[in-house]
Amino acid sequence: MTAHALTIEGLRVEAIHPHGRTALVDGVSLTLHAGEVLALVGASGSGKSMTCAACLDVLPPGTRRVAGSVAIDGNVRTAFELRGRQVASILQNPRTAFNPVRSMREHVGESLRAIGRRGADARAEVTQAMRDAGLDDPERVLGLFPFEMSGGMLQRMMIALALVSRAPFIFADEPTTDLDLIVQREILDLLDRLKGERGLGILLVTHDMGVVARLADRVAVMEHGRIIETGGVMEIFHAPQHAVTRSLVAAHLSLYGLEDVA
């Protein structure tokens, strides 16, 4: 059955230190629908990436999720049930996501084993996913090592692995930050196309309001670990309500010599 919505409810993450605890994510609740891009925006350190990591139980040492749940169509799921099955991840720097001494074929094999997929059908699906992700010669690419590939190729490979998982939702954490402008545009176009063709729900973590304007359907703004404003992308750009949102939009507009948001 196709999933229709992923719901994060009451998520709280704390850092544990000698003097006590500090909330890094505090009471975050969001719903991501199939076939939409929900942009999670805010300044560095506002809790965007931590929110995604907490949902999938991949938090850094010294932090832990102390409250909250993640549900698929109303059914609460564990992080193990979500990772690679209901939610696939696309990371900021694709070069750090691949073992430099293992070929793409080895990475694909490991990914398939992790989700219990094998056989000729799985291999054929890998080939198709790579083509869908813009890798036109899958057999050649599978023989390559990460150091033989550009950042754009590695990002496309990561997207292909996300497609092979058949996960209905993707967490894309700053997926274009380390790419040049032309490749950034190509990756954004690719994600937009896949959203439409496959009905994927994409949680897009970014601080780049240009990326938000290009790709997002809805926007959630974070500040100090909390969601302070949500709305449609046009609403956020043309009628932001919170001072932080106005600052983000104004900073973006200033790049083009436009007036600040009132």
Rank of each mutant, 00 (worst) to 15 (best):
M1C: 09
A5G: 01
A5K: 12
G10K: 15
I16N: 04
L30G: 02
L30I: 10
T31N: 08
T31A: 13
H33F: 09
S44Y: 05
K48I: 06
T51L: 04
A53Q: 11
A54S: 13
D57W: 06
V58G: 02
P61Y: 04
V70R: 01
A71W: 15
A71I: 15
A71L: 14
G74M: 14
R77N: 04
A79W: 08
R83P: 03
G84L: 05
R85V: 12
Q86I: 06
V87W: 00
I90F: 05
Q92W: 06
T96Y: 05
F98R: 01
R105K: 13
E110W: 01
S111R: 13
L112V: 11
R113S: 13
G116Q: 13
A120H: 09
D121K: 14
A129Q: 02
D136S: 15
D137H: 11
E139W: 01
L142Q: 06
L142R: 01
F145G: 13
E148K: 12
M149A: 14
M149V: 10
M153A: 03
R156Y: 07
M157R: 00
I159L: 07
L163W: 02
P168V: 08
P168S: 05
I170W: 15
D173K: 03
D178H: 10
L179H: 09
L181F: 07
I182T: 15
V183C: 05
Q184D: 07
I187V: 14
L190W: 10
L190P: 04
G199L: 09
G201N: 02
I202H: 01
H207S: 09
D208M: 04
D208W: 01
V212C: 08
L215G: 00
V221M: 07
E229R: 05
G232P: 07
A239V: 03
S247G: 11
S247I: 00
V249S: 08
A251I: 02
H252N: 12
L253S: 07
L255Q: 14
D260S: 14
